[in-house]
């Protein structure tokens, strides 16, 4: 993002609420703990600036709303992507190196780095700081809300017999050229987090179903037929049209479509399982090669 020093200073002046969903944090920590050594990756999520505070739900907390609440920026992390290897995001000088496999549809809100450190509290290293600067310069301006770059530093550790793994983590915001520590709230399901649900705006786009062309007799191209067929496993476009066109009482047709989708899901799951096996084998081979190149044999 193209945040100059003045803009960053302005962002520093206002309060920034950082949050991460429990599931996203668990996935992130698992990634850090499962990597053979250090690892880093990008963080995704959204930044928003709620226009007005949520209306009071009870009569008791009027005190909260006596003064006009300052508009506060909230950044929430919803996921990450990582190659599970150290310095996958940067060159040795800490310049951002875009991952080839990274999807370009989403703009990252920051990055994370996992490294077994010895000193508490956790501090960003030389390269992490350089990467934060470089990343903030490289990324397109965050839309719709400008926000400082987020950095989460994780330090996994384990008991000597590896029975207990613990994770120390700390969040930072890039303000000017410094990474300033910030508190990171973990959002879980429950009444305590109602505010989060109030402010929730769905983001995932609904997969677009091809609309059949009514005027043509064929009802769409062969490609469209195939796409829909693969989605519903044999439940043809014609039948789908019948389903949409008919008024009601199509329970049997519905069942058939549902069963078709389940079959499709099952084959997908099988494929995932098989490819996971292959990935694991490949990782083992990589590990052996890495050992050999490091002279560890």
């Amino acid at each position: 993002m193209a945040v100059g020093d003045s803009a960053a200073a302005a962002a520093g002046a206002e309060e920034v609420k950082l949050s991460i969903s429990g599931a996203a944090l668990a996935a992130l920590l698992h990634r850090c703990g499962a990597a053979a050594g250090d690892c880093d990756g990008l963080l995704f999520g959204r930044a928003s600036r709620p226009p007005a505070p949520a209306p009071a739900l009870s009569d008791y907390d009027d005190d909260h709303h006596n003064g006009p609440a300052a508009p506060c920026l909230s950044i929430s992390v919803s996921g990450h992507s990582s190659l599970s290897s150290p310095s996958s995001l940067s060159d040795p000088l800490g310049c951002f190196r875009p991952m080839t496999a990274a999807s370009s549809t989403q703009t990252p809100i920051g990055f994370f780095s996992s490294s077994r450190r010895r000193h508490a509290p956790l501090r960003p290293s030389m390269r992490e700081l350089a990467l934060a600067r470089s990343l903030s310069k490289t990324l397109p301006p965050p839309a719709p809300v400008a926000h400082p770059l987020l950095f989460v530093l994780v330090s996994p550790s384990a008991s000597p017999d590896l029975s207990t793994h613990s994770f120390d983590y700390r969040a930072f915001l890039l303000l000017g050229s410094r990474l300033v520590p910030a508190s990171l709230a973990v959002v879980n399901v429950g009444p305590g987090f109602r505010d989060q649900y109030h402010s929730f705006v769905p983001e995932s786009p609904f997969p677009s179903l091809p609309t059949p062309a009514h005027e043509s007799a064929g009802g769409g191209s062969i490609g469209e037929h195939k796409a829909v067929d693969s989605m519903v496993e044999g439940f043809g476009l014609g039948r789908l049209q019948g389903l949409v066109g008919a008024a009601a009482g199509q329970a049997a047709e519905m069942d058939a479509m549902y069963a078709g989708m389940l079959r499709r899901l099952e084959t997908l799951a099988r494929e995932v399982e098989k490819s996971n096996h292959r990935v694991l084998e490949q990782e083992k081979r990589n590990l052996m090669l890495r050992y050999r190149s490091a002279g560890l044999e």
């Binding site: 050594g37 250090d38 310095s87 030389m126 490091a294």
Partner: peptide, 16 residues
């Protein structure tokens, strides 16, 4: 602190 990666020897060390 100098931090190498034994598993990834090609990665240059990082410094704290």
């Amino acid at each position: 602190d100098f931090m190498y990666n034994a598993m990834y020897p090609k990665v240059a060390p990082d410094v704290l």
